[in-house]
């Protein structure tokens, strides 16, 4: 149990640091900015305390907001993703997901990929809607969401493969 807590705290800090130092400075074509820090919420242990996840994602988003001067947009997006995560599990892995042992940081199967895809999509959509905060930017929001989602997912998969525990 302690080990899980330690790994998650470490992941929390590491992903935030990498996001703030490296990925926040990326800006391809004026549209595409990746947010692979959502990987923390995606990789959070499946059957653990829901309170813990909500509070952790609140802190995660708040830290991002403090560092990017954006009010509460990251916080709201992270919370919504954290709250709807069980439904996404149900959608991607089938009804009995609670009884299976789902390991997300492993080889990418179609189920895992669809879970990551929808998680990132929800997070980015909420994020960009709240960021623009007006409907005159609607198409802009959609384009940003799609392009950033693609970019974030590529980075997420790379990161997952990098931190994957190697098997003998």
């Amino acid at each position: 149990m302690n080990n899980v807590l330690f790994i998650n705290t470490f992941r929390f800090l590491l992903l935030l640091a990498v996001q703030i130092i490296i990925f926040n400075n990326m800006n391809f074509l004026g549209y595409i900015s990746p947010f692979p820090y959502v990987l923390f919420i995606i990789l959070y242990p499946v059957n653990s305390n829901k309170f813990g996840l909500l509070l952790a994602s609140f802190l995660l988003g708040l830290t991002m907001d403090v560092f990017s001067n954006s009010g509460g947009i990251h916080t709201a997006a992270c919370l919504i993703l954290a709250y709807y995560r069980p439904y996404l599990f149900k959608f991607s892995f089938g009804l009995s997901y609670e009884y299976q042992t789902i390991k997300l940081n492993d080889v990418i199967t179609p189920e895992r990929f669809s879970f990551i895809l929808f998680s990132v999509l929800i997070h980015h959509f909420v994020l960009f809607i709240l960021e623009a905060f007006q409907f005159s930017f609607f198409w802009d929001i959609l384009i940003r969401t799609v392009l950033s989602t693609v970019f974030t997912i590529i980075l997420c998969i790379i990161i997952i493969y990098l931190i994957k525990p190697n098997r003998r």
Binding site: D65, G71, I73, A76, Y83
Partner: peptide
Amino acid sequence: NRLLFLLLLGISLFLTIQS
């Protein structure tokens, strides 16, 4: 769980609107 979510979401939306 839902109440905690709504509370935290309320805080974050408040911060967003304020910003």
